[in-house]
Each structure stands twice: as structure tokens, then as C-alpha cells.
């Protein structure tokens, strides 16, 4: 564990807590993409299959349970909670996210480190996580009026993988043979997808005006 990875995990945890806070307190998920939340539930379900087979640390297992629990409860809230589900703008959240799942699965079957069931699903979760934010970014472009909590959620979610890139650089420099091109490239693509959001987020923060994404 290094400071970059801890910062990344804490940022990731904060992003999930901000979203849960928003949905639970104001009983609204306006501006939140259910598609992205469903993709993240799949990412964690396929990433953490080893939770029963390999134990790294209390921290690792605890965080996996938190990420699994929060992502599935957010999907539950948005789909089934009587008040929250009414605030979900279904007409705007129309990204065909299943078109992301299949290519990621095919790519994982083609490019992986080991051809085993767990490894292919784990690789699939890396590819899917890289693109999981797309429905949310598309929704933000459409709804344009981004409330603070949703903006913070996307900002923190993008920041966590940025910290992970620093963690991978640190581990490459300090641990011999720590070379994982698949993880690195997927993580880089993921962070780059946030680049334009980050740009407009900082612009709005600097000029102290409401976050507006160009149409």
C-alpha cells in the first residue's frame, strides 16, 4: 500500500458516499445516470469475485464489501425506491450501455494476462470500468444543469483513477517485475475520458460560476 493508492481508494470511497448521501438525504437521483450505476455494479461484481477465494487484508476485503454494497444499493434506490425512482430522468438517460458490455467482454476474451475464468472476468471489469462513466457524461451534457453533488461525484470518481496512475508509477519504480500493461492502459483511458469534464469543472470552480458543459 502506498499513499497514492490510499488517496485513490479514499477518493473513490468519497465519490460513492457523496452519491449515496445525495440520494438518501434529498431522496433524489436527478442528474444521475442509472446506466453508469448499473455498469459499476457489474464492474465490482466481476472484479471482486476473488473476495471469497483470496484474502489480502481486512482493509481490502472491507473496501470490496463497501463498494459492492454501495453500488448495488444505489441501483436498488434508483430502480425500486418509491420516491427516488420518480426523480430518475429516464428519457435523458438513454445511452445504450449494453453496447459497452459486449465489446469489453470480447476484448477480455482476446486480451488478458491468463486465460482463466476469474482472470478474464477481472480483465473484463477493468475494460468496463474504463468506459462505465460514458452514460453519466452524456447525461450531464444533456441535462447541462449540474447540481453540486453530481458534479462532485463525477469529479471524485475521475480523480481516484488519476491517483491510481500515480500508484502504478510508484509500484513500477519500487517493485521489480510490477508490469501490468492491461491495467495501466485501461486506467489511463478511463482518466482521459474525464479530461474535458475536469477542464469545465475547474473553469466553473475558478470563475466561481455554475458548472456548464458545452452542448
Amino acid at each position: 500500500m502506498n499513499i497514492f493508492r490510499l488517496a485513490g481508494d479514499m477518493t473513490h470511497l468519497a465519490s460513492v458516499l457523496v452519491l449515496l448521501l445525495k440520494i438518501h438525504t434529498i431522496k433524489s437521483c436527478a442528474g444521475v445516470s442509472l446506466k453508469t450505476q448499473e455498469l459499476y455494479a457489474i464492474v465490482f461484481a466481476t472484479r471482486y469475485l476473488d473476495i471469497f477465494t483470496s484474502f489480502y487484508s481486512i482493509y481490502n476485503t472491507l473496501m470490496k464489501l463497501i463498494f459492492l454494497g454501495s453500488s448495488f444499493s444505489i441501483v436498488w434506490y434508483m430502480r425500486y425506491h418509491k420516491t427516488v425512482r420518480r426523480t430518475y430522468d429516464r428519457e435523458q438517460d438513454t445511452f445504450r450501455h449494453w453496447f459497452l458490455v459486449l465489446p469489453c467482454l470480447l476484448l477480455a476474451l482476446l486480451i488478458h494476462e491468463k486465460f482463466t475464468f476469474l482472470e478474464v472476468l477481472w480483465t473484463f471489469s477493468l475494460y468496463l470500468e474504463a468506459v462505465a462513466i460514458l452514460p453519466q457524461l452524456v447525461l450531464l451534457q444533456r441535462t447541462r444543469n449540474i447540481d453540486n453533488l453530481t458534479g462532485q461525484y463525477v469529479f471524485l470518481l475521475g480523480g481516484y483513477r488519476g491517483f491510481y496512475i500515480l500508484n502504478w508509477i510508484y509500484r513500477y519504480l519500487t517493485e521489480p517485475h510490477f508490469v501490468h500493461w492491461i491495467t495501466w492502459i485501461a486506467g489511463l483511458v478511463q482518466t482521459l475520458l474525464y479530461a474535458d469534464f475536469f477542464y469545465y469543472y475547474f473553469q466553473s470552480w475558478k470563475n466561481n460560476k455554475k458548472l456548464q458543459l458545452p452542448a
Binding site: D50, N60, M63, R171, E175
Partner: peptide, 10 residues
Amino acid sequence: PKDDDVKDEL
């Protein structure tokens, strides 16, 4: 797990 294992990450 091997020390260079990336699976210890979240």
C-alpha cells in the same frame, strides 16, 4: 500472492 500482484488493488 506474488509481491508484484496487482490483484491486491481495488
